[in-house]
Design a protein around this nucleic acid. Structure first.
Lengths: 338, 338
DNA sequence: CTGAAAGCGCTAACAT
DNA sequence: ATGTTAGCGCTTTCAG
């Protein structure tokens, strides 16, 4: 069914090599002949992409640049991440268009790279690793790639200031009068950065020293573990008045658990999140959180990747973007105890 | 930088053909030798995908099935569609995993197919065409493909019952006492189906005959045109009490316009949408609408595509799924005029 | 300006 | 059981 340059060559009674020259815009083809070749190719629906495999094989043989003009974004597969993915993907696609590239999105088939990546059909990859992959350490990639949020030695990094973001949350809670706060999250380096910022934000000078209690489990960013952590928080002999969650997803799960146990949010317990990407199935919570600059993260990822492709041996780069505090309705002023 | 089977052959001092046989699991290789070949390949990081281009070229030469195990979903590029895309993509990916395929998502580079499609790097395509493409009629595709919602002769169809869905909206509005209703939408075949269902739903037997006023413009599913249509509706000498929009996006835009002109929703004007995919930037409206079965649409698209790939010359198929009416807070009972 | 031919890595048919 | 070879469609070099 597919056909090649030979087909056009036969029709025009020239050699197949000439067709190649004409289609590639190489010099040394009679302008008249070239025009008729281009016409015939269009008529037959032939383009140099028609037999892309052969072409790229030949390019490889000649050590040519082998650029595919395609970038692959790999994101965790859970539906809950998709309000994240939407705006991020928009940023990726828009910026990619600026450098004449396309972006394809794929949710991660765990434990291995997507086929189009392992087959070398993309120039580069932008990737948000999941907790499990970080833990397993299996993060190879045959092309240059950008890591989102996780600082991986072999990849360039695009992230946000974690400490600064949680400092904003801490300060907000402090201003609301909260002095005993629980942090719930997974046992990960990112969680450590976040609670460090939180502690700093809580430590406003003109208030009593804050108490930050940390509740962490290995892979806690799921409903079951979040509920367990919340239960632990509620079982404290001396209660806290606020829970700062590792991310919005955990915050929403925590609110569910609190409400199901009869604890009013924010009247009896303030809850904050992080990332501004509340699962769409759980609307209306109007979470107090810190929003990620999702479009910018996408756009800058493409920028950094592009620079890396231009200069494969350049120094590794890290880009840290700013976050924005979002006041919602899940954190309120601490009420004095009875 | 890339290397081939020849590299392994040299290391083990066998012929390259034997490497090929071993890696492809063909008979006629000494089990011991095979094992050492597999081990060496793994050590060197070689797989049959390493030089995918050469392999698929050879397959083509032999007329083999040429299956890439990759499906491409092409959706309109606007951010506003993404709450749609998320659940739909989830359905696609989940079902694709069942047939050992991967799905990549790409937002549409207008006027041409994505590179991975035109290069023949995917087995099939699932595609939601935009208004403009429908109008321009340029819908070619080198692989089998599924069209979402739009009935295109050359593709299988996965859609929902448009008339039935709007019948539910019409009935709901009728039950709330609305007899004069405006439909706003683009000038498209789908819009005609929708308002036909709407008219039927409004025509409850035990009520006065309804009046359905139609306001359509060529490509009206955007904020500017929606506002203009709403203005036209508000300028009617004899006012309507409800606006049924072509989709949720137009409904949300319409509500914005109404509120900016001091018209209370739903107190003074009821508004309904369609598709259950409210743009995430415009939450909290709690739209009265009909929800699409997005996961099912995705899953069934993959199913149908899979069947088509199994049986390329089978009859064209259309799959029509059911919708679900969602009572929200933007449609209320008609209040008696002063 | 154009044709002829080499050769990219792979698979399978044929030879040993 | 293993080695050898043809040839997929393409780009480029070398002849003419």
């Amino acid at each position: 069914m597919p056909f090649g340059q030979h087909e056009i060559a036969k029709k025009l009674d020239v050699s197949q090599g000439t067709i190649s020259r004409a289609l590639n815009g190489k010099p040394g083809v009679n302008p008249k002949l070239r025009k008729s070749i281009l016409t015939e190719a269009k008529k037959l629906g032939y383009s140099l992409d028609t037999n892309f495999a052969a072409r790229s094989m030949r390019h490889q043989a000649l050590g040519l640049s082998q650029t595919t003009r395609v970038i692959c974004a790999i994101l965790p597969g859970s539906l809950d991440e998709f309000s994240f993915s939407g705006r991020f993907f928009k940023g990726l696609s828009t910026q990619a268009a600026q450098i004449a590239c396309e972006v394809v999105l794929i949710t991660h088939p765990i434990g291995q790279l997507p086929l189009i990546v392992s087959r070398g059909q993309v120039d580069g990859v932008v990737r948000l690793l999941g907790d499990l992959e970080i833990a397993s350490g299996a993060v190879g990639c045959p092309t240059p790639w950008i890591s989102l949020f996780w600082d991986i030695p072999e990849a360039d990094l695009v992230t946000v200031g974690q400490e600064a973001a949680f400092w904003k949350i801490g300060r907000h809670l402090a201003q609301l009068g909260h002095r005993r706060v629980a942090f719930i999250g997974p046992e990960m380096p990112l969680a450590r950065e976040r609670r460090r910022g939180l502690a700093a934000g809580l430590a406003l000078e003109d208030a009593s020293p804050p108490v930050l209690l940390v509740f962490e489990k290995p892979f806690a960013a799921n409903p079951v573990d979040t509920r367990l952590l919340v239960d632990e928080v509620l079982a404290l002999p001396e209660p806290v008045t606020a829970i700062a969650a590792y991310n919005d997803y955990m915050a929403v799960c925590a609110i569910d658990e609190l409400e199901s146990r009869g604890v009013q949010v924010p009247a009896e317990m303030s809850v904050t999140g992080f990332d501004g990407a509340v699962p769409s199935g759980l609307r209306g919570h109007d979470l107090t959180t810190v929003a990620l600059p999702l479009e910018a993260l996408g756009a800058e990822s493409v920028n950094l990747l592009h620079q890396r492709l231009q200069n494969p041996d350049g120094p590794r780069r890290k880009l840290i973007l700013e976050t924005e505090f979002m006041e919602g309705r899940t954190a309120a002023a601490r009420v004095a105890k009875a």
